[in-house]
């Protein structure tokens, strides 16, 4: 590397909560949250374009859905990240996950982790979304296999489940 480049390598310690677990990393400014999460072993966060076109890397940052490829790791300092694995798993599936499985909403599955996180943010924002709301909420998440229709129906089903959980709890 040139002298100019070596001079500005200023690394910084960054504390991030990932799926409830405290992680401490030391990275330079230009490392993205996507890169850091994958280096931490969170391979469920997928990389599809590295420029915010596809949404495969979507995660929740303090509850808001972001493209982790366009989020600098430094800007995630002190904040909480949720990936699809943090949402639930086989023992404690989130209603969105159950619905995605039951509706056959994943084909190749590569867009699925980001898609589910965008759907989670959508339902947090609009608990009873119309089809129009769902389409708008997912327009940054590309899927090439499904035609999105089963993704829409899964989100509608999950919204219904969440509503029922709300009323019974």
């Amino acid at each position: 590397m040139t002298d100019k480049e070596t001079q500005m390598i200023t690394e910084k310690r960054v504390d991030i909560q990932v799926n409830g677990q405290a992680c401490e990393i030391t990275v330079p400014a230009w490392r993205t949250l996507l890169e850091v999460l994958r280096e931490l072993g969170h391979k469920e966060v997928k990389c599809g374009c590295e420029k915010g076109d596809c949404g495969a890397c979507a995660v929740l940052l303090d509850g808001k859905v972001v493209d982790s490829c366009l989020t600098l790791a430094w800007n995630a300092a002190g904040r909480s990240v949720t990936t699809v694995q943090g949402l639930g798993g086989p023992d404690n599936p989130h209603p969105l996950q159950t619905a995605f499985i039951e509706h056959g909403s994943a084909q190749c599955g590569y867009c699925t982790p980001g898609m589910i996180m965008a759907a989670k943010a959508l339902l947090d924002d609009i608990p009873e979304p119309s089809l129009k709301d769902i389409k708008r909420g997912l327009s940054g998440n590309l899927c090439r296999c499904t035609g999105y229709t089963r993704i829409f129906s899964a989100i509608q089903a999950a919204a219904e489940t969440l509503r029922q959980q709300e009323t019974t709890s």
């Binding site: 469920e44 990936t83 694995q85 499985i101 994943a106 599955g109």
Partner: peptide, 9 residues
């Protein structure tokens, strides 16, 4: 293959 894709594993 659905569950593993949906759980991100």
């Amino acid at each position: 293959d659905s569950p593993t894709k949906v759980y991100g594993t």
